Simulated assay, not measured.
Amino acid sequence: MRILISNDDGIHAPGLAVLERIAHALSSDVWVVAPEVERSGASRALTLTEPVRVRTVGERRFACSGTPTDCVLLGIDELVKGGRPDLVLSGVNRGQNLAEDTSVSGTVAAAVQGMQMGIPSIALSQAVNFRVGHPIPWHTAEAHGAEVLRKLLAKPWPDGVVMNVNFPDCEPEDVMGLEATFQGFRDECIHQIDRRSDLRGNDYYWIGYRGKLSKPPLGSDLLAIYENRISVSPLHIDMTEHSALLALREGLEA
């Protein structure tokens, strides 16, 4: 099996090294094309107004000046030699990609690009509490990652679907199982804007997230992570709300 790996945290991210080790547990034919610098929150951005540059950083390893989507596109069509990949893996992301986060996630977007090009694709993220000094339990993703991938690959899933895997913020032995989940939605916006001033008195802003928990329903990706279960959500690029479409048709046609 030929595996292409990407991420949105950059070529030097610790989560990428974790995913490389997970991938090598499944195959010796592993290729890496990742952003030169962190591109978190890039979603499905594609670089169209400037050239995309690629730097070779090792055998079958490339750093790309573009977005996660650029990386997968170039990897499949240009950089992976000897045949197209059989699998695209993205991650392991620093931080959870759950609920509405999935629509802005560069990690998920890289997997979506692989799916769009006809290759089974999986996004992987390690949940973390972003308190200062709180360690990221990369060893949890690494301990369970290969087993989760083997289970997913054992049974094909429909075209147009990407698998979104999130590992809980706990020790490997404290993981309470593996759950198929639906994409949740937080009951409160958790964006945070921090306004500061530079030495010339001009305002600038940091955009981030508050760590407030929601009250998610049973079966959601959020609840699974809150309760220390590995969440696996099948995501579809079709964002149409079909029940609303039916009502819209009825109204417009009337």
Rank of each mutant, 00 (worst) to 15 (best):
P51K: 10
M115R: 15
V88Q: 03
V161E: 15
L89V: 08
E36R: 13
E171D: 14
G177T: 05
I3T: 11
T56I: 13
W206A: 11
V175D: 10
M1W: 02
I22S: 09
L223H: 01
D198R: 01
G83A: 09
A146M: 05
A63E: 11
R210E: 12
K215S: 11
L16R: 05
H134P: 01
S125V: 02
V88M: 08
R2C: 01
H134L: 04
R39E: 14
A25R: 15
S43L: 00
V54R: 08
F130E: 03
C64T: 03
P135A: 02
E171V: 07
Q192Y: 13
V33W: 02
V37T: 15
W31R: 02
G58P: 07
R195F: 10
G133E: 04
V104D: 12
L79Y: 04
A63W: 07
N7A: 13
E253Q: 11
G10A: 09
G106I: 02
E253V: 10
R229A: 06
G251S: 11
P172T: 10
I193H: 11
A180P: 04
W206L: 15
A146Y: 00
V132H: 03
S231P: 03
L74T: 00
R186A: 13
P156F: 11
D174G: 05
D29W: 06
V165G: 02
N228G: 01
L153A: 05
M1I: 02
F185E: 08
L73W: 09
